[in-house]
């Protein structure tokens, strides 16, 4: 996408919810029919705006989880316990409801099918959402570019897109590794965090044409990006997207 396309003026438009899918206890995918949607790149996000009867408004950004196939857009929203917008999207919004959208937004944390070189995806928790869009775009484009996903989650029940991911892993197009931080399924005894040894064993080694995408909570991204740079990856080839507060005392 050229600069002119990325700097196109964005206007609010009304989409209609055509389907909702509960991915986990706290994450939900929302499928929208949006006739004026201009299309998007995998990894981009969208602003969502809610309006109360008295005119009060609240907006937030969410990652797009679908690849652009010519119509519609899907978001996956993780409910933030004390949030204002996400509880509505996860618990209240229903099929047939209107939803105001503005986007797509963001031109850096994106994967383009025409870009050269293998792709390493590393997600923590709901940070997998834009990475799923990349996997889907990879499939839609029938790309032969090697792709690996390292997905760090608390426990098996926290895995978003579990069915889709297992299908992708079985298809041999995608090398998928789950990292369970609190509780692993039977037969997969390892519980722990992504560390240098795991990156060495499961992630692509540093290479001039490799692009690595890391998305997740800020402390997760800080830790993984530092490990990658220490492990010899060129910082300019590691793209990150962080959400939430920094760790530590506050």
């Amino acid at each position: 996408m050229e600069r002119t396309a990325l700097r196109r003026r964005l206007t609010w438009q009304v989409g209609t919810v055509t389907e909702v899918r509960d991915e986990t206890e706290t994450a939900r995918t929302i499928v929208l029919d949006a006739p004026d949607w201009p299309g998007h790149l995998a990894g981009q996000h969208v602003d969502v705006r809610l309006t109360a009867p008295d005119g009060y408004r609240a907006s937030r950004s969410y990652s797009i989880s679908s690849a652009w196939t010519g119509e519609g857009v899907e978001l996956t929203v993780e409910q933030v316990p004390d949030g204002e917008v996400s509880p509505y999207l996860v618990e209240v919004l229903k099929v047939g409801d209107p939803l105001e959208l503005r986007g797509p937004v963001g031109g850096w944390f994106v994967w383009r099918p025409e870009q050269a070189g293998p792709i390493q995806l590393i997600g923590g928790g709901s940070g997998v959402v834009p990475l799923m869009a990349m996997l889907r775009a990879h499939g839609t484009a029938a790309s032969t570019t090697p792709v690996r996903l390292l997905y760090s989650v608390r426990r098996p029940a926290s895995v978003i897109y579990v069915k889709d991911l297992k299908e992708l892993a079985a298809s041999e197009d995608v090398d998928l590794t789950f990292v369970y931080t609190r509780e692993a399924p039977a037969g997969e005894p390892r519980v722990g965090r992504i560390d240098a040894a795991l990156l060495q064993a499961k992630a692509f080694a540093p290479a001039d044409d490799l692009t690595t995408y890391v998305c997740g909570p800020t402390p997760f991204v800080e830790a993984v990006a530092d490990l990658l740079v220490t492990g010899g990856h060129d910082p300019a080839r590691v793209r990150t997207e962080r959400f939430g507060p920094t760790g530590g005392p506050r």
């Binding site: 907006s59 850096w108 990006a225 910082p235 590691v238 793209r239 990150t240 507060p245 506050r250």
Partner: peptide
């Protein structure tokens, strides 16, 4: 307009922290 209040200090960076 369009902002919400936080007590946290979130981080937005495009790459690894130098």
């Amino acid at each position: 307009p369009g902002q919400y209040l936080t007590q946290d200090f979130p981080v937005l960076s495009a790459g690894p922290t130098p």
